[in-house]
């Protein structure tokens, strides 16, 4: 799951010439890699990919701030089994 989400974030949020090191603990929203306006796309991707429904309170800037945190949220809602 980690690789899939990392790949999505690289593709969706980084430009080709961005030289950003990205791993499961890299801050995403607080660092500006993922702009908070487009979290809707990230939420939609996770829901589709893992066949889950994420309530808004679990799709917040805090709970989406690293891939590790995102994985916790996805698992909490039964994704990735």
């Amino acid at each position: 799951m980690e690789d899939v989400i990392l790949a999505y974030i690289r593709n969706e949020y980084l430009e080709d010439d961005d030289e950003v090191e990205l791993d499961a603990d890299t801050p995403l929203i607080s660092s500006g890699i993922v702009d908070s306006f487009s979290m809707v796309s990230l939420k939609r991707f996770l829901e589709k990919k893992y066949d889950i429904t994420l309530p808004d309170e679990d799709a917040s800037a805090e709970s989406f701030d690293s891939v590790r945190k995102i994985i916790t949220v996805v698992k909490k809602h039964g994704g990735g089994k």
């Binding site: 430009e15 702009d35 306006f37 487009s38 809707v40 796309s41």
Partner: peptide
């Protein structure tokens, strides 16, 4: 509202004041 990721700060603030769903596209 679907905005370019490099729009001016005042647009970002205006969008924040609005209740519409937000999304962005690469510059």
């Amino acid at each position: 509202i679907i905005s370019d990721r490099l729009v001016h700060a005042s647009i970002v603030d205006g969008i924040r004041l609005c209740k519409a769903v937000t999304d962005t596209y690469k510059h």
